[in-house]
């Protein structure tokens, strides 16, 4: 009896074998390295933001609103962003008016109407490839087509040319996000609608689009934000890269859009960034802060839309 009681019981053996005593060094190392990569990426982001704020802070402190409301000037103490912000806003209007309906319309055709033909597959493949074309190549398209070929309509180097170029640039992305949103709508919904005798368009309009709209809007806002930060194509599509340009006094918005010289926020940042004088560093950084704040606001709207939609769906 005494010897037997000293033998470990089954439960002791089991307990010993399933309680992990060995420290899993590899596991800890892997987790540490992975976490490190995340923190390095975060660190870069924080460094970038902090660097811009530090370099640009004096501009906001010294000039405040004047920096936003002043026009361009060769004097970095006086130069401001009003023309850049105006140009960027008008460019976005073009993107929304042109690329949104075309992109969503094309997506509706591809997802809801098109049969699986070679033509359809070609359009889809073509769209994916267009999304991967470098933005400066779209600039060449904008230069050749909108600035030169269609100058009768666009008046050459105007906001119309720039806006159309950016619209064409984001069109494939618009199509892809809208397609994904439509594909996420459950097929049971379409069946239910056809089942009560709805036509294709009635089904799309009353059932598919209402369900897909939040995702389409979110994607579109993010896409517009991307267009807002684009500058390479505008270099070719007629934006003015200069420290100064003026519009004749008293010209209306329509004339400015159809006839005037133009620039955009990222273009101004680029132009300031390449100026050799040290005084331009501060306003470049300050311009970047303004650019990032606007982008953050726009992205915030998109994320808000997405959250509201997912909360309502829950």
């Amino acid at each position: 009896m005494a010897t037997r009681s000293k033998m470990p019981t089954t439960s002791d053996l089991v307990k010993a074998s399933i309680s992990g005593k060995k420290t899993d060094f590899v596991g800890i190392a892997v987790a540490f390295i992975l976490l490190l990569t995340v923190f390095v990426s975060l660190g870069i982001l924080i460094t970038l933001l902090a660097d811009m704020l530090i370099k640009g802070w004096s501009v906001f402190a010294d000039r405040g609103w004047d920096f936003i409301s002043s026009p361009l000037s060769p004097d970095p103490e006086k130069a401001g962003l009003s023309q850049a912000i105006f140009g960027s806003l008008i460019l976005m209007v073009f993107v929304v008016i042109v690329a949104f309906p075309l992109g969503v319309g094309a997506a509706i055709y591809l997802e809801e109407y098109a049969k699986d033909t070679r033509m359809t597959r070609f359009i889809v493949a073509n769209m994916r490839n267009l999304a991967g074309v470098p933005s400066i190549v779209y600039g060449l398209l904008g230069f050749a087509v909108f600035v030169q070929l269609l100058s009768g309509i666009t008046n050459g180097r105007t906001l119309i040319s720039g806006g159309l170029t950016l619209a064409v640039l984001v069109l494939p992305i618009m199509m892809i996000t809208a397609s994904e949103a439509l594909r996420a709508v459950p097929d049971a919904l379409r069946q239910a609608s056809y089942g009560v005798g709805a036509t294709k368009w009635e089904t799309i309009r009353h059932h598919v689009l209402p369900v897909a709209t939040p995702a389409i809007l979110t994607g579109s806002v993010l896409t517009v934000a991307r267009a807002f930060g684009e500058s390479a194509p505008l270099l070719l599509a007629g934006a003015v890269l200069s420290n100064f340009f003026s519009a004749p006094a008293g010209t209306g918005v329509v004339t400015l859009v159809t006839e005037g010289d133009y620039t955009a926020l990222p273009i101004v940042v680029f132009n300031w960034a390449r100026q050799p004088q040290k005084e331009f560093v501060a306003i470049t950084a300050a311009g970047i802060v303004v650019l990032l704040v606007i982008l953050l606001l726009v992205n915030g709207v998109a994320i808000y839309l997405r959250d509201r939609a997912s909360r309502r769906a829950a």
Partner: peptide
Amino acid sequence: RRERRVRILFQSAAVFSIVVSAAIVFSL
């Protein structure tokens, strides 16, 4: 008729993307 018109509208939007690629290639 309305169904057909709507369909043609969307189809032309999709075909426009091919016009864009053609324009890129030709202008280059």
